[in-house]
Structures are given as C-alpha cells and as structure tokens.
Nucleic acid binder design. Structure first.
Lengths: 343, 343
DNA sequence: CTTGCATTGAGGTGCGCACCTCAATATGAC
DNA sequence: GTCATATTGAGGTGCGCACCTCAATGCAAG
C-alpha cells in the first residue's frame, strides 16, 4: 500500500499537523522537524497524491497567453491551439485564455503587462518582441508572483522566466544547411526575406543561417535581409526589384513565421526561374506550398506542443513542482512534402 | 462555480444515486433517465472532476511495455525512457514496467502475450514483429479487456488496437527525399542496409524510399537490401563486397533502428569515398556521427514521446476517455547536425 | 520563577466523487 | 386486481489531503 501523510507522520514521529506544516511550507516549523520529515519521506518513499491535493485545494488555475494582435496564419494556428488546450483543460479546473495586443510600441506592451492583476492570474505566457521595457515589465510580474513564460520569442538575458520555443540560431542554421544542400553544388545568390529585422528571433535565425552558408557553402552568397513590414505592396516592390537586380538568385529563405506575403511576391516575380525555397512554420499556406512543391522545406516548431509545454510549465511552477525537462524542449522540425503527414 | 454531480442531479430532476448509475454505466437505469442526465450534462456543462474521480476510485493502473530482448542503442534509449516515465507516473498511482522478451519465434511471443494476466495488467504496449500469431494473441488480449497499443511496430490490419509510431512508408519516403536532394544531381548507386527485411517497418520504409527515388531521382539506383542479421562479421562481409562490386555507390541508407553495426562496416570499407549517409533513429552513435559529419541526416521518431503517448492512450482507454488525437501523432523528425540540440 | 513566543498536537471540516445498502416506488405480466 | 421485477431514492462511508482552530508544550530571556 502506498504510504499516506498519516504514515509519514508516524514514520517521522510527528503529528499529522506538523507534517502538514512541513509539506505545505507553513510557518512555525523547527528546522529539526523539517529534517525529520524530509528523512521520513526518503525512507518510506512518500509521494503526495496529486489527485487528493487537487481536490483538497480545490483551486482554479488561470493562465493567459499574450500574443500579437497582428499576424497572419501562424498566429491563427497558435490561437486555435490555445483554444484546443482550453477545452482539454476545462476538466482540470484550469482557465486558459488568449489575449491579443498590439506589439508596435514596447511601452504599450509594458503597460499592458503591468496592468495584469496578479490576484486574478496565475501564469502568463508572453510572445512579445525583445525590448528593455518588456523585459522589466516581465520581471516585475515575476516579482509579483505571476509565473511567466517567454513564449516563442525570448528576451535577452532573462533567466527569471522560463522560455518555450526553439533556439532560433539553430533553426536558422538548420535552414541554412537544408538550403545549401538542396541547392546542390551550384554557385548563386540567396534572397533572405523577413517581416522585420527588429525581432530577436529574426536576427538569431539570420545569424544561424549565415554561419552555415559562410562556413559550408562558400560559393553561395546570401543577400541582405529584405523587410516587408507585412505590407503586400512593399513586399512585391522590393522583392521584384531584388530578383531583377540579381538574376543569379537561386534560392529564397523566408525568416519570418508568416511566409505568405513574401512568397506570393516571389512567385509573381519569378519569371520561370527554379528557386529553392525554405521558409519557417507550418501554416495552411506553407503546407499547401510544400505539397505543390513550391516550397522545398519548412523549418517549424509545433505550436500545439509549444502551447501545451507553456501550460505544463506554468502549472508546475504554480505548484512548486519540478518537471521533466526533456519533455519541454521544443524541437526544430524539418518538414518536407514527404513527412507532412496530413490526414 | 463549477457544477458538481449534485447540481447535475438537480438539473436532471433525478437523485444523485441515479446520476451516479448513469455516469458510471451501472445497470438498472432506464433509457429515459440516461437521456435526462445526458441532456442535463449538456445544459449545465457538467464535467466530472478528474481529481475527485481518481481519489474516489483509488485505483492503481498497471501498464507494461513489451519490447525485444535483443537490440542495441535505440532499444536501450527506449527502455531508459520507459524508466523515466515510470518515475514521473509514480505520483499518479500508475505502475509502468518494461518486459524484454525474445522476438525470434512468433509462437513464443504469442505464448507470452497469452500468459498475461488481464487481472494484473490494465494495458500493454507491444513492440513485436508482424505475424499472424502475434496479431491473434493481441486480439485475444483486447477481448480480455486489456488495452493494447501497437508500439512502434504495427500489425497489418489490426484496427482493434491503437498504433503509436510513425508511418514507416512516409519515413522511408522522407529518407529518400533527403538522400536524393543531398546527393545532388549526380548519378550513382545507393546501398540499402537493414538488420532484417522480415519486419513490416523495414519493408514499408524500403517501399517509401524506393517510391521517391524512382519518381524523383531516376538517375539514382538503389541496390537490393542487404540484411545484416545484427551480425558484425556478416555485415562487414556483405557490405564490403557490395561496395567493392559497386564502385559508383554514392550513398548509404540504413533502414533499421540500429545503425551502428552496418555503418561501422561501411566506414571501414569505405576507402576514402565520400558517401551521403542517411540512417534512422537518434542514438548516442548516430548523434555522434552527425556531429562528426559522417552521417548526413537521421530520420527519427522520439522514443520519449512515443512512450508518453502510449501511456496516455492506455490510460485514456482504461478510463473510457477520449483523447486529443493531434497530440498523439508521432512525427517523422529530420535530424541534421544543426538541429540536434544537444545540451 | 514568570512572561512571551515558538513549536507541536489533536481534532474537525470539506473538496467531489465512487461505491455500497436498503427501502420505496414504478412498470409490466398475468 | 396481484405479483415479480425493474428502477429510483435516500443515505452513508471513504479516498488523501489542505486548511483551520484551539489547547498544550517547549524554550529562552528577564
């Protein structure tokens, strides 16, 4: 029979009340008693019954995802995954919600974060561009006891909050390796397109990409990053111009999560050239383009996994529990037409 | 406030006892009552509190992984993941164990499966070669109420048990695509090595691989499958001979989960030739070889995910619960040196 | 020794549900 | 109508723990 708290009290030679004080870190416990309990736990292999804990606490957890208000298909996918998780967690007394806020002005983001009521929210998963204001606001949230997860987009040097998402340098390097090897041993130029290079993840991907191209494919030249600002007209203009000026372009790498706008522009300006195309994130658009063989490879991080991982982390932190680190590492996926596994 | 069973009884105009009978599918319930309860559940949005259920049932779940006794690094990795899950699930009153049995003789496997006490085990995840005897034994297990998962290695046409693992045809196709594109537009031969072609997964991978090579890379020729039978001597012999007779071999594809033996043989017979190498499964060996750039790509299915998924499925089936299908699809990963993400 | 505070113990209540018993009522067959 | 059987209701108990109160004991400073 599995030992209960009562058994633990007996083994420790203490009362149930004191054991309860130790287990729940209540005040008025002597170090001696705490030690006796810890030893007894080891000795008899006591583990709290999570079901009983959950029932007795009868607590409702409230977690919020804070994501950009703008965005295209990847963001929609993400929000749909949050909704899925919300449904799945209803049974476990866990409220999950998604808040979309404008991410243009770091001060506005910081203001929003500061306004979060730490009494009404247990954890927040934030997907926001890197900026000192945001970082400070997040740190204040942490100090107020809110469990913060940096979601898909990390702040530089912010150890006080967990990060869920891929290593973007490695993701860029992976894109570089795939692009380089798929192109074959032909010299030429690679066009690199991003929504904006203000975001930390874009910068890191670019650095990772270049590191591989420069080191392993010296006959390839990657062009300066084009920024679309998510503007179709602008995208069409600068991409068309770049392709025109660089007739020896043999590949395109789209850094951003949203590949629809830039690639649509590329294809309309392509004039029959065969281009090796690498993009990021699985969306209805990129999926279809893989199937149509207009994109060669997609480097992705599964949004469903990311959402579930963020929730597991916030939940574990709320309960002061450890978690299985290996389960929370989001993998850099390489998607080809062949391993898409559409239903 | 979240509705409880008591609220449900009130809403349904029935007693708690009857509601309990309906919820737990006990006998002596009129269809009319069942319908009233179902309607009330919908109306008030009742969800059973899983914590309370677990506590009241106070049941210990017992799940067993049945895997081959032979095997090398991938199997060791797998078993280590089972151990990890065992630890993680101790808190949830779930016993997890791994049994290693010889997989040489289908009758022996079937005998082992038949001997499983359905009273002592709630679920079994079986990784066994495809054979009618095994299939029948699994079906009998299912009939005896044991939740069966076909683990990483499926039986043909066995719908009565869940399957956890990748689509091996697609995995082979992915390997083919990567190999073909990595080789570049050069003609040559591809050596294909397997431990044995008796296993369904090997056959399916081979079919997937060939389908891509034939359709998209007609200038490549994949050689007949070599079978090592996990014998180092034999492997050295047949691989050396094949390489000698086919000096225009430019790539190697290792079908099996264990790549150490065949690739060691390849490298010792390689004589300085540069080969594009694609293998399956992440192991200490394949990981190191990726880092050393002696393997170009590894097609993998994460054993940790597979183990956790199998456990989630067995648990859900035991509780007659539905589960989130999207979470249980094991993905075909493409691992390069760049996205290995070693710690 | 007394006062004050820290520590401990005993005991109770409730979380939401499963599972059980026994009595009461409804429904059908005859 | 009577009987047998099916169905329902009322109520209790326990799962393991969190959280609370109040009394009892320990200990140290004065």
């Amino acid at each position: 029979m599995r030992p209960t708290a009562k058994d633990l009290a007996e083994a420790a030679g203490l009362s149930l009340a004191t054991v309860d004080r130790v287990l729940n870190e209540r005040p008025n416990v002597s170090p001696k008693a705490a030690k006796k309990v810890a030893e007894a736990i080891e000795r008899i292999g006591f583990i709290r019954n999570p079901a009983a804990v959950a029932l007795a606490r009868n607590k409702t957890y409230r977690f919020r995802f804070v994501v950009p208000a703008s965005g295209d298909q990847y963001l929609a996918e993400l929000i749909s995954r949050v909704g899925e998780a919300k449904e799945a967690l209803r049974a476990d007394s866990t409220d999950v919600e998604a808040a979309q806020i404008p991410m243009g002005d770091p001060h506005q983001i910081a203001k929003y974060l500061s306004a979060i009521d730490s009494e009404a929210v247990d954890g927040v998963a934030v997907m926001a561009p890197e900026s000192p204001q945001v970082r400070d606001a997040l740190m204040r949230l942490v100090e107020r006891g809110v469990k913060v997860v940096q979601f898909l987009s990390g702040q530089e040097r912010m150890e006080s909050a967990d990060y869920v998402g891929v290593d973007n340098f490695a993701a860029g390097a992976t894109a570089g390796k795939i692009a380089g090897r798929f192109i074959g041993a032909r010299p030429g130029k690679i066009m690199v397109v991003a929504e904006t290079m203000m975001a930390l993840d874009s910068i890191q991907r670019r650095l990772g990409f270049d590191s591989i191209i420069n080191a392993q494919f010296p006959y390839l030249q990657s062009l300066p990053s084009l920024e679309t600002y998510a503007d179709e007209k602008r995208a069409g203009l600068i991409i068309g111009r770049t392709l025109h000026h660089n007739p020896d372009t043999i590949a395109v790498y789209v850094l951003s999560s949203e590949a629809r706008v830039p690639l649509t522009a590329v294809w309309s300006a392509q004039e029959g050239r065969a281009l090796t195309v690498v993009a990021h994130e699985r969306t209805p658009f990129s999926e279809q383009a893989l199937i149509d063989e207009r994109i060669d490879a997609v480097i992705a991080q599964d949004p469903g996994h990311a959402v579930r991982s963020a929730l597991r982390i916030m939940r574990a932190r709320s309960d002061h529990r450890e978690l299985l680190a290996s389960q929370e590492r989001i993998r850099i996926e390489v998607l080809l037409k062949e391993n898409l596994q559409v239903e």
